[in-house]
Design a protein around this nucleic acid. Structure first.
Lengths: 130, 130
DNA sequence: GCGTGATTACTCGGATACAAGATGTCCGAGTTTGAGCGG
DNA sequence: CCGCTCAAACTCGGACATCTTGTATCCGAGTAATCACGC
């Protein structure tokens, strides 16, 4: 079990959007160059972030991506969910009639982690960098 | 990102070992039948649990698997680590000189979850079932 | 009745097969900006 | 100087290709208990 690299890229891309250019749209090519990823692959993740409502894309020349909300309102969990999906990371495959106690424990544990990630905002990191 | 089914099986197998037969060894065939998995596949996970020191195997006739420690001393995290490995679930692939702030946040979040899983013992569930 | 060998009931480990998902590339289509050209 | 057209700079989305990993099976080897058989 591991987080995908895509999540890694998305987090870094978001952090860059915040610290580098709050207003001006940033193109994929510049982002890809900074992160060392191919443009086409990175654009897949950016698309997911757009669909999740975290960022905004403006097509055409001088276009690019830009934050949709304030950076104080964007949590780590938002980004991770946008890339990885919101499905629970444990699902009991056995069909023992009632609810699975084991599943309940693991999901509770997952919730601990998500709570932490939800309280961590992008803005918390951008302050440290500046 | 998801926990593998193997972890699911291992957790259920451990729970069965605790609730069904505290002393007598339980064979793979019986376990596999209870869980609805093939014997050969389940035996892979049992091997991992043995190597992790959680259970003990006795070969030969009337053999099988049996707990090595007391059930109060076996946590969910022990079992999960035995199957999934102890590697961190996030690793920054970018080589920006210093330590990655993003990675630090995610790893801290992971620790939250692990702490919860470490405090949950198998014995907690076996009490509820009996 | 007692020892010895064969059979049976198990675990253990490697090799292999298969499917799904992560990773990454290529290409065509749509959209806006801006430059160039002609009237 | 104005308006039209065209090219360039972008994003968007689908279709592939590849590689890793999870899932699963098969088979042979080792080991201990039990049974059978002969002395």
């Amino acid at each position: 079990m591991k987080y995908s690299q895509a999540t890694d890229y998305a987090l870094h891309a978001m952090l860059y959007l915040v610290t580098a250019a709050p207003d001006k749209p940033v193109g994929v090519q510049l982002l890809a160059e900074k992160l060392g990823v191919s443009q086409t692959y990175l654009s897949k993740m950016m698309t997911k972030l757009v669909k999740a409502g975290l960022i905004q894309s403006t097509p055409g020349a001088n276009g690019g991506y830009r934050l949709r909300r304030k950076q104080e309102d964007i949590s780590f969990l938002d980004i991770i969910h946008a890339i990885e999906g919101t499905a629970s990371l444990f699902e009991c495959s056995l069909n023992h009639g009632s609810e699975c106690l084991i599943q309940q424990v693991v999901i509770d544990a997952e919730r601990q982690m998500e709570q932490y990630l939800e309280n961590k905002k992008i803005a918390d990191l951008s302050k440290l960098i500046k």
